[in-house]
Simulated scan of single mutants.
Amino acid sequence: MTEMIRALVVDDERYAREEMIYLLEQFERVKIVGEADSGELAIIKAMQLQPDVVFLDIEMPKVDGMEVARTLGSLKKVPLVVFATAYPQFAAEAFRVHAIDYLLKPYDEEQLRQTIARVEQLLQPKTDASPKRIDRLPVEMEGEIHYIPIGDILYVHREENWTKIVTPTRDYETRMTLKELENRLTYSSFFRIHKSILVNLVHVSSLTPWFNGAYQLEVDQRPEKLSVSRNYVKELRQRLEG
């Protein structure tokens, strides 16, 4: 990637905007294309300037940062969103509007450096037509955001109003539906084996006939047997056996 990263800085406090602009100007490949002191102006400038990334405050009068982020998501060119705020309690909601990072004031320069590196990676031109694969899944649990490496997930199981994400070391529970997770994991090695189960094919260790055309499946490092509905068996075997 050789083009400049076009950044829009949004904060209703002048000195906070100036500080963020100063810090961003230390990065050779970041170009500040505009700034805004309100949510309304942020949306207008994003439409006019088409930035690659918006550094966005949350607590603003009238139109707050969350509403701005939701509106930006509907634009023809959707910019990356990095929240920059003094309030840690909005982190969980921030990731529900697909923010790529959450910076707390006063800003930590090393964290900002990592954020810019993430922006650069996400803006890299794709070398083929394949969608970009994510390598970590953000999951909110008990007020915290856990970043689960996709490769560590053994399987995902929907149980009543919760979805359980199973890894070798621990289980995570989320209110995300199985369909939501399936959509997020589309370009990874996951396959639905039952109406309530997604399995990471990388970790499948055995497949055993059961009854009426159904099978039972086992994954690495877990003793339980998972039910494979007969409607999924043929495609599952094709995926596993190449």
Rank of each mutant, 00 (worst) to 15 (best):
I153Q: 01
D37I: 00
L236W: 07
A94G: 15
K126L: 07
V199L: 02
M47H: 09
D128I: 00
L103S: 08
D135M: 06
V156G: 09
F191W: 09
E180Y: 01
G213D: 07
E35S: 13
R118N: 08
S189P: 12
N183F: 05
S130C: 08
R70C: 11
E109R: 11
Y155M: 13
Q48D: 03
E224C: 14
N231C: 06
E40R: 11
D11H: 07
S189V: 07
D37A: 06
E28F: 05
M20V: 10
R29S: 10
Y102W: 03
L137I: 11
D37H: 06
V78R: 04
E59V: 11
D220I: 10
T177M: 09
K31R: 15
D12F: 03
E19R: 14
A42T: 07
P79M: 04
Y155D: 10
Y87P: 00
I32K: 06
E40A: 12
V9A: 08
P209L: 04
V233Y: 00
G242H: 07
I5K: 00
T208G: 05
S205D: 12
E218A: 15
A86P: 01
E140P: 10
S227Q: 03
Q89F: 11
Y22C: 13
P88Q: 06
T167L: 06
A7I: 02
K132V: 06
P138H: 08
L103R: 07
M141P: 01
V202D: 15
I100T: 12
F190T: 10
L72V: 06
G213R: 12
R113I: 00
L185N: 10
K45M: 13
L154W: 01
R17E: 14
V53P: 00
N183L: 08
L198E: 12
R184C: 06
L104A: 08
M20N: 02
K164T: 11
A94K: 03
A129I: 01
V199M: 04
R14E: 15
L8A: 06
D101E: 08
L112K: 10
Q111H: 14
V33L: 01
Y187N: 15
G73I: 11
M47Q: 13
D12N: 14
D220Y: 07
F90P: 09
E224I: 12
P223C: 01
V54L: 06
A84Q: 04
K164F: 02
E3R: 12
